[in-house]
Structure formats: structure tokens, C-alpha cells
Computed example of a mutant assay.
Amino acid sequence: MAHPLRIVAVSGGLQRPSKAAALAEHLLDLIADELPCEQRLVELGPLAPQLAGAVWRSQLPDAVERELAVVEQADVLVVATPVYRGAYTGLFKHFFDFIHQDALVDKPVLLAATGGSERHALVIDHQLRPLFSFFQARTLPLGVYATDQDFTNHRLQSEALIARARLAVQRALPLIALARHTKPLQAEDVVLA
């Protein structure tokens, strides 16, 4: 019998409460409403002191290594980051720099970001998609971008944002199901003519 679907969200927010974490949790819950799964939220803020100064994965403490393994073993990823200076946080990038480059191949990834205004909305297509394309992950069709005005007390309040999140998950479900039933192609499976 197959293991339950493992859905892991990574929040690049540095603080708690975090709008990025709230958005990630909301997306996790929407997916869990549709599919039986195990959910896990990895918050990078508390890991920041343990990531600082590490250049190689072997230099990381066990707590960070465990979180990296959780991400690598996920069936589906939800990633959410605040936008700082037009891009994902440095901590977010530093964490993903330690992910094995083949660990996310064909893994569905739902992209999300939060920012102070609409002018940063392109971060999903101009920053996050290229990062996960490097990993050969399957970035899902719709990303979810939220501004500060979409939240009240770090809770999603905007009906438009809630509808966008619901649509992103609905569009993702067939691709998640497809990935669940498709074995990733391995190098040894490729036959060159």
C-alpha cells in the first residue's frame, strides 16, 4: 500500500507570525480538504541561526538536516516567501541551496509569495519559477501572490485572494494526482539510439 501523500510547505518568512506562513498554511489546508494527506510546515525563520555561516550541507546541525530531508521526501511542495527587494528572501535561497539537485525532479510545487504591494507580484514568474525549474520540479500553473492588504492580523481576509488560492489548488489537483501515479524517469531508464 502506498504511503499517504506527503505535502510540505516551506515558508521563507523570518518572523512569527508571518504572512508567508499564513498563506502557506492556507494552501496546505485547501489541498488537505481535497486529498487525504500528511501536512507539514517548515518555517525558515527559526532555522536562520543554524543556517548562518554554513557553506556545505555537512556543516548543518541535525535540526536543519531533518527539515531538508522532509522537503526532499515530500510528494508535493508548497513554497511561500516574502518579497525582499524584488526577490525571495536570502534565507529561502540559502535553504534551497542545500537541497540535493535531483531531489525535486518532477515534484509538483505550488508557488506563493507575499509583498507590500502588487508591484512585486511578478516574483512568482521571474524568481520562483526559474529556481524550481533548475530543480526540474513541476511548478504548478497558478501561483498565489498576496499583499499586506489581503491580511488582517496575519489571517487571509481578501475574498479575491481566497478565491485565487482555491483556484490555484483546483488547477493543481490533476497534476498532483498525475505525479502521484507516475514514476519519475530515472537516468538508467533512458535508452539512447
Results as ranks from 00 to 15, higher is better:
Gly115Ser: 12
Ala112Gln: 01
Val55Arg: 13
Arg6His: 12
Thr152Ile: 13
Val8Lys: 00
Asp29His: 15
Pro61His: 12
Tyr84Gly: 07
Ala103Gln: 03
Ala146His: 11
Ala179Cys: 06
Pro4Glu: 11
His26Asn: 15
Gly116Arg: 08
Val169Asp: 01
Asp189Tyr: 00
Phe95Glu: 05
Phe134Met: 07
Thr147Gly: 05
Val144Ala: 09
Leu35Thr: 08
Pro4Gln: 10
Leu128Gly: 01
Leu192Ile: 13
Lys19Pro: 00
Pro4Leu: 10
Arg85Pro: 01
Leu30Cys: 13
Ala52His: 08
Val169Ser: 01
Glu34Ala: 15
Leu28Met: 06
Ala74Tyr: 00
Val79Cys: 08
Ala9Cys: 03
Asp62Pro: 01
Leu173Glu: 05
Ala172Gln: 04
Pro4Arg: 06
Leu35Gln: 09
Gly115Cys: 12
Arg129Lys: 03
Thr81Phe: 01
Pro49Ile: 15
Pro174Glu: 07
Gln39Arg: 15
Lys107His: 09
Gln127Phe: 08
Ser158Val: 07
Arg16Thr: 14
His120Arg: 13
Arg85Ala: 08
His126Ser: 09
Ala113Trp: 09
Asp148Ala: 14
Ala113Glu: 12
Phe96Asp: 01
Thr182Asn: 06
Ala177Ile: 14
Ser158Ala: 11
Val105Gly: 09
Val42Ile: 12
Val78Thr: 10
Glu65Ala: 11
Ser117Pro: 13
Leu47Lys: 02
Val76Ala: 06
Val123Met: 07
Gln101Pro: 07
His94Cys: 07
Pro108Lys: 04
Val42Glu: 00
Pro108Ile: 07
Thr89Cys: 04
Gly45Met: 06
Val76Arg: 04
